[in-house]
Amino acid sequence: MNPSLKTLVFACRWCPLLGAERAGRERLALPPDFRLIPMECAGAVSPDLILRAFADGAHGVAVMGCHFGGCRHNGANRSAHTRLQLLSAALEAVGIRPARLFVSWGTAHEARQFAGVLSDFQARIRALRKEKDLPLLRGNFTPGHDREMRP
């Protein structure tokens, strides 16, 4: 297994993070190449952050949130969904494989569900390792207002 097939998972701290914690408590085995960033709401994930993740070396990015109708923030996940669909279309238009951006709503709040969803995602990213689309994003992306990043 290629050790540098890292993926980034943005998980909202309600349903998906609960699934992650339960998976931990039950000691379910998961592949170690994903990095999880908890967010208050999946609606807080901007396309900017996702593109930054790809630029920094992610082979895949997952956004996990609560199911529609179950968002604690009055359905902010619905507008997030629209945003991410637009991003997905934009990525596809420039030649990035759509499977690299994975969005899951409310399917991962239980230990086994979380483990299953994450393992599937990792497997799909691993299947894409021979593709040549990522260099389109590596190092070529400078967001307009990215003046705050200091080394």
Partner: peptide, 11 residues
């Protein structure tokens, strides 16, 4: 609403 019972109760 067919929500999971756990979510609202847990928070």
């Amino acid at each position: 609403t067919d929500h999971c019972a756990f979510c609202p109760v847990w928070t």
